[in-house]
């Protein structure tokens, strides 16, 4: 499944937030067209891992490559679509759904004005998440799930090859999670690679190729769908991997302190 060259690879990555070491040497790769989920308890380093990949938390050690380019030389930001954790804080001035989604297109247009092709890409991104009919509404008038879809459309507006999402299901009710899963499935069908942080897999479970469990700043184990049987048969060796696998299968949360108890 994975192409020869991964779209993203972290090797022996370490990172600190202030005085606290949050990542203690993790290896993480996303192959071309692959959907990788980062699971783990609060404070395990999932979000920090994602934020190092987008360059918002500097690495204190190790290597990061994006599309085969070392991070220091990477400039091709249009290939990455970032969906941050939804914040409840609204900006001080209202903005329409289309205005917010259009700002994602700046990854391609930079300082030049939006052309016809750019407007079409924005319209397509809105359609993928099913919000074309709300384009002129204020984002402040949207529900939590709709707001999350706006953030996804904003990331899709640059037509990225790698989608990076931080807890896209947080605060989104079940019905809306299905809508999000459908939008993501369509995008993955077009060959987009995805790296996402999840608290619970929920309706996204069938889309996930591979799950990585984070604990205490380490990517402890990898649950590989092809190896699910092996992992399940040797739970004492790879307890957490089995738990992760079980959680993905059942859509249960693995946020508890000891995910092994699910196995």
């Amino acid at each position: 499944m994975a192409a020869p060259q991964p779209v993203m690879s972290l090797r022996a990555a370490t990172a600190s937030l202030g005085a606290r070491t949050v990542l203690r040497g993790i290896d993480l790769t996303v192959g071309s067209g692959e959907v990788v989920a980062l699971l783990g308890a609060n404070g395990s380093g999932k979000s920090t891992a994602i934020r190092t990949v987008i360059g918002q938390v500097p690495l204190s050690g190790g290597e990061l490559e994006l599309f085969g380019t070392p991070f220091a030389r990477f400039r091709d930001w249009r290939r990455i679509g970032y969906v941050p954790q939804r914040s409840t804080a609204a900006a001080g001035v209202p903005a329409t759904v289309r205005e917010v989604v259009s700002s994602g297109r700046l990854a391609r247009t930079r300082l030049r004005p939006l052309g016809r092709a750019d407007r079409a890409a924005v319209a397509r991104a809105l359609d993928v998440v099913g919000l074309g009919h709300r384009a002129k509404d204020s984002v402040n008038a949207l529900s939590g799930g709709q707001h999350q879809r706006v953030l996804i459309a904003r990331a899709l507006a640059s037509e990225p090859d790698l989608l990076i999402m931080d807890e896209p299901l947080a605060g989104v009710d079940l019905a809306a999670q299905d809508v999000l899963a459908e939008a993501l499935r369509e995008q993955v069908g077009r060959g987009t690679s995805v790296l996402l942080v999840l608290h619970e897999a929920g309706p996204l479970a069938p889309l996930i190729d591979r799950a990585v469990l984070m604990r205490d700043g380490l990517a402890e184990s990898v649950a590989d769908p092809e190896r699910l049987h092996d992992l399940a048969c040797h739970p004492h060796d790879t307890r957490d991997a089995a738990a992760t696998a079980a959680a993905i299968q059942s859509g249960l949360s693995v946020s508890e302190a000891n995910p092994g108890t699910h196995a």
Binding site: Q56, P84, A95, S102, L106, A107
Partner: peptide, 21 residues
């Protein structure tokens, strides 16, 4: 002239950085 870029920066600064602005 730079209203789209400034809008993006003031709306969500972290996202604007990830777009390469």
């Amino acid at each position: 002239g730079l209203r789209r870029q400034l809008f993006a920066v003031c709306q969500d600064e972290e996202f604007a950085r990830v777009t390469g602005l």
